[in-house]
Each structure stands twice: as C-alpha cells, then as structure tokens.
C-alpha cells in the first residue's frame, strides 16, 4: 500500500498547471479516488500537478441563471454552500451522500466526476440537473453536457492535457421538487443504486421530470422513457410506479458481489418510485 515514486508540482497559476498537464503530467485534486489507486499501484503517474491550491478553481458562485462550481470545490463546500442549497438543492443533498465526513472534506467535484466511478453519487444529480462541464486545456476551453461528459466506466470526455475547470448547474425554478435516494453498498458506501429526481408541476400536472441514475450501469444516465411517461400526469401512485418501472429499460445492468443485475434493476425501480414520491412531495 505504498505508491510508486512521482514528481510533484504545486503550480502558482492555472496556466502553469495546464502547461505541465500538456506535457503529460496528471492532475491531483482531493485525491480521494486517485490516491487509493496509487497505493494499490493500479495507477502510477510520473508527475502530479496539485490543483487544490489554485484559487481560480475553488469557488461556488451564482452567475446569471446558473451556479458555477469550481473544480476543486469540496463535497463539503457543495453540501453546505448557501448558494447550492438555495439554487440547486438536489446537488447539495447528493453531496451529503458521498463517502463520509473526512472524504467530503477533501474530495472535490472535479476530481470525482473526472474519475467517473460508475457508482459515484454526483453523476446521478448532474444528469438530472442537465449540468454542463467546462473543460480547459492549455490552448482551449470547451463546454460539454454531462450526458456527453460521462462516457464509460472511468472514462470521460476529457482529452489528455485537459482539466475540468468548473461545473455549471442551472438555477432551479421555484416550485421544482428534488430528491436523491440511494442504496449504499454496506462496506464502501458507494451507490449500488442512486436515483436523482427533479419534478415540476404546472396546473396540477407534471410539466417536467428529470431522472438521473447512477450505480446501475457502466455509466450514469438519464432515464428518458421514465421521464416521458410522467409528463402530463398528475403523479398518482400508479403513474409513478409505471414510470419508475421504465427507469432501467434497455440498460445493461451491472452485476457484482454486492448486487446481481436483477436485484439492481429491481432496486432502481423501487428507488426511482421513492425518489419521485419524495420529489413530488417537495414540489409546489
């Protein structure tokens, strides 16, 4: 449980960091995913660039109709930020489910989503929130939707030399109800299934429903069929059940020591219903 040797730089500026990354160095943020991998010698970067000290990556601010969260904002920051709690509460609620207190104190939103563990919590919420991720390289900057960002297990849209600069989350319209419901793997605390839901009613009918799913498949996703099934519905128990039953449709579901594919699929349906109920109860 000893990492292999590497060089370390704590750059003074984002440009310096990007310059090093362009030469093949790897970014280090909170280290909650990378350092365990390095200790197990499953990862052995030659050069680490510490992003955690860069002030211009560590912020949470409301800007226009969106909340901008710098890559090195910790889960604790997100969980407790008045801006996040007020403007996109689903993300704060989800952050509170990540790991444990110590992990939330160190772990960052950028590090977590860049790692893209298929059982991580954030992706469910970010999918439901239709968030965007700003990727920055030495000479470029681009913005991608999370739907495009989360590619596959431990794989994202990040190109070599690129880092996540920030995550952009739209400010929630008032009246939207949200909820994150999770079945935690008892040993690791990771999500066997995590369902993030946003619903908004207008005129007694569900006008908008977004369902983000993590833990179930090789990548997080939005359960589009289930969302569609809810639109225009009043949100009765039967309607919720019918929609929830679509949450894992046409999904290649993971199977492991902690849950078979069948059970995961079942849990996804149960928890989608629970998350929908909770979100509807919170909606105006």
């Amino acid at each position: 449980m000893i990492p292999q040797a590497f060089d370390y730089t704590a750059p003074k500026s984002l440009d310096e960091a990007l310059g090093l990354l362009a030469k093949g160095a790897k970014p280090l943020a909170g280290g909650m995913s990378l350092i365990p991998m390095m200790k197990l010698r499953l990862a052995a970067p030659d050069h680490l660039v510490d992003l955690r000290r860069l002030k211009d990556l560590n912020y949470i601010r409301e800007q226009g109709a969106a909340v901008h969260i710098g890559a090195t904002a910790t889960h604790y920051d997100v969980e407790n930020s008045a801006v996040v709690r007020g403007k996109c509460p689903l993300l704060a609620e989800t952050a509170a489910h990540i790991g444990d207190v110590q992990v939330r104190n160190m772990g960052t939103i950028g590090g977590s989503i860049a790692h893209n563990d298929p059982s991580a919590d954030y992706p469910a919420a970010l999918q439901a929130l239709e968030a965007k991720v700003v990727l920055k390289g030495a000479k470029s900057e681009r913005t991608v939707s999370v739907a495009d960002f989360f590619v596959d297990t431990f794989t994202t849209a990040l190109e070599p030399g690129e880092i996540i600069r920030e995550v952009i989350v739209p400010v929630e319209d008032s009246g939207t109800g949200t909820s994150y419901q999770k079945v935690a793997q008892p040993a690791s605390g990771f999500a066997i299934v995590g369902i993030a839901v946003r619903v908004r009613k207008s005129g007694g009918k569900i006008g908008m429903a977004r369902i983000g799913v993590t833990g179930l498949a090789n990548r997080s996703y939005r359960a589009a069929a289930a969302e569609k099934a809810l639109e225009g519905k009043a949100g009765s128990a039967t309607e919720i059940q019918n929609a929830a039953s679509l949450v894992a449709e046409r999904v290649d579901v993971n199977s492991d020591l902690h849950a078979s594919a069948d059970y995961r699929r079942h849990l996804a349906v149960v928890y989608a219903a629970r998350a929908l109920m909770a979100a509807l109860a919170r909606s105006a």
Binding site: Y8, A10, L28, G31, M32, I35, P36, K39, D50, R52, V101, Q102, V103, N105, M106
Partner: peptide, 11 residues
Amino acid sequence: AVKSCTMFAVQ
C-alpha cells in the same frame, strides 16, 4: 477532519 493515509505530505 481528513484521512491522513489518503493524502500526501506535500499536500
């Protein structure tokens, strides 16, 4: 509170 086994001294 942090876990000092999952952090480098240089951090």
